[in-house]
Design a protein around this nucleic acid. Structure first.
Length: 243
DNA sequence: ACGCCCGCCTGTAAGC
DNA sequence: TGCTTACAGGCGGGCG
């Protein structure tokens, strides 16, 4: 792994262990190893976790092959090497590497209150706020745009400028978009990089309302979708029905 | 503390 | 056809 080098030490912490459970926190995938130890995977921009027969050929850019006792093999494939794998031990506050993460948008029963209070104390734009993993964990460039469109809110609206009804709309849109995207098994873009564990393509890209749809008609009002750069990221929005 | 830019990498597509 | 440039689901560091 590029960011946390030391493959021998990493392998030694995995060898012989049993995965007793799997989980997720934000964009980090978690494999429970017992004894408070956790194998953590982040896919970055181009990472894949693929389950395959151990005897089969591994694709190029396979950085890790974890062989299981039943003959299957879990592979971490990542051409751009922006992803990472590491083993860490949870302390009282959980894993130290994940301590910066904000609330879980779907799992935290207080997510609506936490979104409201987080937005109330920032004048930053809504898109930057949604992308900030310290406020809310797990939202990236696609779903921030999708959420803001469903909520009818512009990317540059200061967080503190929202009234209660608008915060409520934003929270409901966040839950709805993320839930629908998960149900559709994620968004696979033109490069087909994103795959699930079995190598299948996601399906939510067909439902994208604005992402990569510049020039096409907004599904709500028919106005052409615009593309701009926000904080260095391509961003898509409807200039008419997002206010 | 925040906003902004850059670098980290490889692959692909578009432009000349 | 081939070379160059821009851009891509993320994140963290440095600077003003």
């Amino acid at each position: 792994m590029r960011r946390r080098p030391g493959s021998a030490a990493f392998a030694a912490r995995l060898e012989g262990r049993t995965v007793s459970g799997v989980g997720r926190r934000g964009k980090y995938l978690l494999f429970q190893l017992g004894g408070q130890e956790v194998w953590v995977v982040h896919l970055g921009m181009s990472g894949q976790l693929l389950l395959a027969e151990g005897a089969s050929d591994a694709p190029t850019h396979t950085h890790l092959r974890a062989a299981f006792a039943d003959g299957l093999e879990l592979r971490f494939v990542d051409p751009r090497t922006f992803g990472e794998c590491f083993v860490s031990r949870a302390g009282k506050g959980g894993l130290p590497e994940l301590a910066h993460l904000g609330f879980e948008p779907l799992d935290d029963p207080e997510s609506a209150d936490k979104l409201a209070s987080g937005l109330a104390r920032t004048h930053r734009g809504l898109k930057v706020a949604l992308l900030d993993q310290r406020l809310v964990a797990g939202i990236g460039n696609i779903y921030s745009d999708e959420i803001l469109h469903m909520a009818g809110l512009r990317w540059d609206r200061p967080g503190s400028s929202l009234d209660d009804a608008q915060v409520g709309r934003l929270h409901r849109a966040m839950v709805a978009i993320l839930s629908a995207a998960i149900d559709a098994r994620g968004s696979t873009l033109a490069d087909s990089q994103y795959r699930d564990l079995d190598g299948r393509l996601g399906g939510y890209q067909a439902a994208h309302r604005v992402y990569a749809r510049q020039g096409q008609a907004c599904g709500v009002c028919g106005t052409p979708i615009e593309r701009i750069r926000v904080a260095g990221r391509s961003s898509f929005f409807c200039p008419s029905c997002q206010t």
